[in-house]
Design a protein around this nucleic acid. Structure first.
Lengths: 131, 131, 131, 131
DNA sequence: GTGGTCTAGACCACG
DNA sequence: GTGGTCTAGACCACT
């Protein structure tokens, strides 16, 4: 797997896991319909507890990223992730808010900020082309 | 004060405080050199614990946003906030990373994302003009 | 067959099967005395495990909905389903209890609730008239 | 507390807990804004694990029944429970569906069913008057 | 003292 | 073998 965790980070492990999997989907490393490792095997792979993996999976399921079949295991939502709605946009805005506030204080220009975003977007889409 | 806390939020109160003060600086509501309320009075104003305010102030001092004089009290750093360095840019990038990943999954175009950022930047700068 | 399963559902497949067959009987799509597919053929039809179908059939037999003859196969109870007794009424009540509690919390009026039930009753009986 | 669990039941404990709390709200035993016991104390009271209580609380929080303050503890949503929307009505319908199907098979008349519901509604509302 | 997180180990239902 | 549930015990962040 492509999972890469930082056990020293303040960010909870299950949150990191969520982000890593979302990034995997964003980059096309895992395609809709594709299977994810079982809770147990992923936990063993990464060397963490199965409950931690489960917590991440449950969250991703609730957000519509994945489906959890009781017996068959876990797959990326074959219909794709639910598109952005107003609730998501509000949430995104409120997460960007403090980042932009601090950037302004630190004299990061809007242009530089925009370029940084652009760079990240490109990074994801390149991964998509190749895989 | 312009502090606006959400006690239901998952975000710790001291973090919200930090963000609110940084936003106040970004919008020019509080200028470099200007004084901030003392730990005690701010805590009393908002109705939260002394320690919580103190924790926020300590963090802001650490980051160079404010100075804490034992007698004179708290002031916004008169020399302005330290400009962005590579460490800050890395940190900013790592915070944007998961946001952009999810946006891509949810079919938010780079353009829409960029416009959202632009909108937030404008919002801050308008506050600056008027105060 | 008229069986319609949701493999993504949290509801176990054998439970869904039970419900579907009961609904078939309620709507008159399958009449008392009528034969049901064998365990093997139904399993093959739907593409699920033998054991799963068997579990559903055993449950239905236990409840008096169907009879399972070793040779003749499976038939809907020709004498009709056992009528409601106190045990059944208690069970029904305990299943309705949490539904009604939540409905009250969510400001669903007794009238609206009643109309919803009425609508479902009608739905079943219409199926009965036509078949 | 008014919590009453059946440890022999097939129903998971955390689900029973959810139902009991919702019923408490429906009956007005716990009012909007009122505090619920802490995860630990409730777990100790009932004699179950704190994680089980937490799971129930998390679910209730997600459904809008309660608010969880990080430090202050748990309170019933002071703004009341979110009113029924179409999603809830669909869900309610799909839960009533199998109940009504079986009732029809067992020759429970629509009237009898309706009276049973009415009786349950009354039961809840009486609790409300008195408390 | 509160909830949040993580670990560990166990049993069960399902298919 | 899969996820679901429950228990138990530990540490941490927050206030």
């Amino acid at each position: 797997m492509f999972i890469n965790l930082d056990f020293e980070s303040k960010e909870p492990i299950y949150v990191q896991l969520i982000h890593q999997i979302i990034e995997g989907i964003a980059k096309g490393k895992i395609q809709p319909g594709e299977a994810l490792p079982s809770v147990r095997s992923l936990a063993a792979d990464i060397g963490i507890n199965l409950h931690t993996v489960n917590k991440a999976y449950q969250h991703l399921k609730q957000e519509g990223f994945i489906l959890i079949h009781r017996q068959k295991g876990v797959v990326v939502n074959p219909e794709g992730v639910p598109e952005a709605d107003d609730a998501y946009r509000d949430q995104l805005k409120s997460k960007l808010h403090p980042l932009i506030a601090e950037s302004i204080c630190r004299k990061v220009s809007e242009q530089e900020f925009s370029e940084l975003c652009s760079q990240l977007f490109t990074e994801f889409n390149e991964g998509k082309g190749g895989k």
